[in-house]
Amino acid sequence: MYNFDFERPKSVADAVKALQTEEAQPLGGGQTLIPTLKQRLAMPSKLVSLAGIDEIKGVCKDDQNRLCIGGGTVHRVIAEKAMSEGFPGLTGLASKIGDPAVRNRGTIGGSLANNDPSACYPAAAMATGATIVTDRREIAADDYFKGLFETALEEGEIITEVKMPIPEASAYMKFEQPASRFPLVGVFVARFSDRVGVGVTGASESGVFRWTEAERALGSDFSADAVKGLSVPADGMISDLHGTAEYRAHLVGVMTRRAVAAAQ
């Protein structure tokens, strides 16, 4: 990789300051960024590690029954805490990202900031209607994801927290791409008292999306049968070595039904 300066601030304020250098880039857990740097696909002047900032680590529940996850919290901790806070769907998601070593380093903030079209958290963020909190503002999930690797984040903006409404029932189903084991298709289903959210990752050429047709159908009948007749169009789905667009579209239906069944 190209060389760069390395800083490890202790506070968000210091991190924001450190990121004012031109071409400076924040480093979360590095589980995606470091392989990218090895391929010399990025050339930051400086990496600002967020790993030393305690104020953006940890998980708690707020008075609106939202799970508030520090942006620097690693997947393993999220999996543990989501379970004890009554959010098993998020545990299912976080406990299956990558592998155990990746889960010890990778963070939710890093994942959401990168917005890989095959990342898992974006599906949960979309399905639950999460709020992405940064050092300077709050962004609704629907406004946050802007396409492949594109988000609403500005230069040097840091995700400090993710507030995820805790559903009454939820589940994540991922069909793994055989090589990378990222989701070929991942579907997060979240049932709330007044609505159902369905977030789909891995499938679409424009990144994570909400399957609103399924949300409506499940809103009136939360059962796998309710979405049996529904399908997403293959048009606009990713087609690659590992699956055609038709196959991904098909899997969206299958994984949605399975997620609903698992959430029952």
Binding site: I34, Q39, A101
Partner: peptide, 28 residues
Amino acid sequence: DTSQCGACLVHVDGEAVKACTMFAAEAE
């Protein structure tokens, strides 16, 4: 070089970590 094979796995502060996907500076 894609953080998948695990031949570099070590423990950092008691936890499994891929030493190829962590900067030395982060282990200060």
